Amino acid sequence: MVDESLLVQRMSGRKLSGLIAATYTPMTASGDLKLDVIPQMVEKLLLDGISGLYVCGSTGEGMSLTTPERQSIAAAFVEASGGRLPVIVQVGHNSLRESQTLAAHAQQVGADAISATCPSYFKVSTTRTLVDSMKELASAAPETPFYYYHIPMLTGSSIDMPEFLTQADEAIPTLVGLKYTDTKLFEFQRCLELANRQFDVVWGCDEMLLGATATGARAAIGSTYNIAAKLYRQMTLALTSGQLDAARKWQSQAIEMISTIGRYPFHPAMKAILAMQGLDVGPCRLPLESLSSAQAKSLREELQAIGFFDWCRVTAEPSHS
């Protein structure tokens, strides 16, 4: 039986805030999990000012991992976090039965929330099907807040999100909001303002964080927060203190950084940058590529040329002059 008082407590008034790192999955050179690195990863992110962890998403190669592997990773991040910051576990799968297994496990190990993409091999083309699918999935973790993960560029599902939230609100008791990874700021704003700002809508496009923050985003989930959280924190601080030109400068630097990384296989390049910062999380698993030694050397040189290694260490407050 569901503890309804506990459910209400967990669903109400606990919106995410700040920068939430979409965590990488540490692996050995042969592609096996390397769970002993996770505590070090969490400590680094805490020092960088990260306010939450999003585990086994696109960044964490969740779709390339087995269900037991995903369970092991989720448990390791929850344990390493020690309640110091929320852990959201991504449980989406082409098999909704496997998603239910992952969701139930996430609740069992104490994840603060679950999140899920929709099945993507067979495309979800109607709002009703999306609601029914997410209802079935979320029912396996009836005491854990649920965030739908909207990322149409990967799932191929472009359902109208305000319509989904409206229909899902009644059907899914644990629904609290969305991870919104698209570039439609107008739709993001509609979701934020829906039902008297009922839903916790979290931004998911690092290149557009400034626009999303100006639109009303309180939290963002992203890959590059793993390597440059301090840059994004400076941008947010500049914006909230009324220094729009400075905020634009920080966002411009983030865009340049992402553009530079994007000239290489993105997630393998990100893992290489983490190694450059002293955190060896290994390579990615096929079908993602690995960087050659020449590519890693070239990447480091390009990042040095744009000043990245200074940005990621930035500690100064923005000028008030």
Rank of each mutant, 00 (worst) to 15 (best):
L47W: 10
R84A: 12
R70G: 03
E289W: 13
T67K: 08
P268C: 06
V42R: 04
H150E: 05
A113R: 14
H150W: 09
Q108L: 12
Q253S: 07
P26H: 00
L237E: 11
L65I: 01
D169Y: 08
V131L: 06
I273Q: 04
T174R: 10
H150R: 05
V2I: 15
H267L: 15
I221V: 12
M63P: 06
S133F: 07
G211K: 01
E79H: 14
V55L: 06
M1F: 11
M11E: 01
F77D: 00
A138G: 04
P283H: 11
V176I: 13
A212H: 03
Y147W: 01
A21F: 03
A106F: 04
R218V: 01
A269D: 07
V202S: 03
T236H: 13
F188V: 00
S223P: 11
F186Q: 15
A22F: 03
I73L: 11
T59P: 06
L6E: 13
E170Q: 14
T67R: 10
V42E: 03
D245H: 10
W250S: 05
A74C: 12
T260W: 07
L288F: 15
A219Q: 08
G52P: 09
W250F: 15
T315N: 13
D182C: 10
L175I: 08
I114D: 09
P265K: 03
V202Q: 06
L165Q: 00
C284I: 06
D206V: 06
P152M: 04
T23F: 07
S241D: 12
F186W: 15
A294E: 15
R70M: 05
S95C: 09
S72L: 15
C312T: 13
P318L: 00
K135T: 11
T215N: 09
M153L: 14
V281I: 13
R313E: 12
L279T: 05
V281K: 05
A275C: 11
D310H: 12
V89T: 08
L299T: 04
W203F: 14
